[in-house]
Amino acid sequence: MGSPCELLVETKDEALALRVARFAAHEARRIDGKFSRYRHDSLVHAINSSHGRPTSVDDETARLIDYGEALWKLSERRFDLTSGLLRQAWNFDEGPVAAHPKKIPALLDHIGWQRVTWEPPTLTLPEGMEIDLGGIGKEYAVDRVADWVITETDEPVLVNFGGDLRCTGRPPANGAWHVGIESIELAGEAAGRIKLGAGALATSGDAKRHIEIDGVRHGHIFDARTGWPVRGAPRSITVAAPTCSQAGSYSTLAMLQGEGAEAFLQSEGVRYWLLR
C-alpha cells in the first residue's frame, strides 16, 4: 500500500484481535500484490504488458474496473484509470515542478477510457496504454477488511490503511474513534481531530506539499482530460461516507473540481473537511 497500515481492535479477546489482525495483514498484502503496478508478478502488470491483446480478468478485478469506469463517467472523464502514464511528464519527487510539458500531448493519445474495450470479463487495452488501480485499491482494501470484520465480531475495530479508514462494530468505550488527520485543519486549529462513530474517512491531497506552476497553485491529482494537475484544487480534502471507497471517491472527485470542490461537496451533502 506504500503507507503504514494499522488496525485497532477494542476487545478483551486476544485470540479475536490476532485473528482480525492476521486477516487484515493477509488481505492488504494480497490486494497490494494483485493490483500493484510496480510488481512484475501482478495482474495489473500482466494487463499493462498485453500489447493490445484481450486479457480476461477475474471477478474481483472486473468489479474494480467497473468501479473505475463508473468514476470516469461520474467525473465526466476527469478521473481515468489509464491516466497513470502522466507520471512520465510529471515528477513529484523532484520538487514542485519537474515536468516535461511537451510530452503531454503525446501521452494524452494513450490516455482515455473511451479508447479501451471493456466487455467483462475481457479487457482490451490498446498498445501503449496502461491502467492503474492503485488509486482505488487502498480504499477497496480497507472496505474488504472492514466487511470481513463485521461478519466476525461486533467489537469496535478501526481499519486504517495510510490514513484512509473505516470503523466497524459498535462504537468504542468513549463513544467514537478519535482520528487525528494530519492534512486537515479544523477552523482555527493546528491539528484536525475527528470523532468517527460509524463509517469511513478518506483524504486526498497533501497539506505539506504545494505544486506551483507559473505562480498558480495546482493539486496533486491530474485531470485526465488535460494531462495537467487540477488548477485551484484544495491542498487536502477529507470526506466521511459509509464506506472508504465512497469517501475516497468523493475526495478525489472533489479534488478534480478544483475551485469548485466546496460547491461539489456541498451539493453532495457529505461531511467534509477541506484545507486550501
Partner: peptide, 8 residues
Amino acid sequence: APAAAQEV
C-alpha cells in the same frame, strides 16, 4: 448505517 463523523 450512515457515516457518523464530527470534529472533536
